[in-house]
Amino acid sequence: MNLEAKNAIMGRLQSLQQMPSIPASLYPLLKYMEQPAEKVSIQKIVDLISGDGSLAAQCLRVANSPLYGRSKDIDTIRGAVMALGLRRMQNIATSCCVLKILPLDRTEIDPLVFWEHSLGCALLCRHFAKSINFDNPEKAYLAGLLHDLGIVVNVWVLPKEFAAAVELARKREIPIHEAEAESMGITHCETGKILAEKWKFGPDLREVMGYHHDPAHAHDYRSLVALVSLTDLLCRMRGLGHGFTEVREIDFLEEPGVAVLKTECPELQKFDWARFTFELESHMEEVHQLVNMVYRAA
């Protein structure tokens, strides 16, 4: 792509005026998620969710779903926190909050497919983190959920260019970031980093959004970035990607993310990649149901 076109794209990104602002409840939810569970006040979480009418309704709908095997009706947020646990409720609330920023009528990328990928990554990141004794599984969940927000920026700010990139990726069966680089001269990693700064995300999430396709060049949070990078790749290879197949062969042991992550997590040396792959299936149902429920309730 020529320099003039790329400069025009960069100019439009500078202001991000077309971008929705950060959902009101998201920032405090993220803050609470960063604190150790024992330090989080249940009442504060209950008040926060209850204070946002549509968020509270969505959370109750999800909490009452067969997904969590409930046999009694839960009719208050406090009841939901008690029944499902604080962390799970925070995860549900955060997911509901984030899912609103890509309305169902967008056609550049199927929002259901996009959020299924993000939520699948979130659940698998946490599971991966626990499996290799990574120090912060909840942070891993959040990082997985938010890693592709740059795609949302592209949908809002560069809809035509992004639609063309998705079409190219679909046609050539290549990853979206490769198609973006080729046709737009910029990827969702760069646009994600701009958004993370605008929304004042912490430096760890900023690095995840900016480097999850290039973990070796991350700076201070390389392990978290690598963890998301590997999980993202696995989701895309197992049919939980961006709505099309990437035709390629992957040896995870040759992935840059593995080299980065094993310096901090020695457990990765004997990690059973086959089992981890099969375990992804365990999350599929939860992912499909949760995303569908949130959108139906929206």
């Binding site: 696995l234 290879m237 197992r238 049919g239 197949t245 990437e246 035709v247 390629r248 062969e249 992957i250 040896d251 995870f252 042991l253 040759e254 990649w273 086959a274 792959t277």
Partner: peptide, 22 residues
């Protein structure tokens, strides 16, 4: 060695040339 293909897995010889994936 385990390799991943779209929605499938397979095994290749461990002494196969490294970097042969992709």
């Amino acid at each position: 060695r385990l390799v991943h293909l779209p929605s499938a897995t397979a095994y290749v010889k461990a002494d196969r040339e490294q970097g042969a994936s992709r």
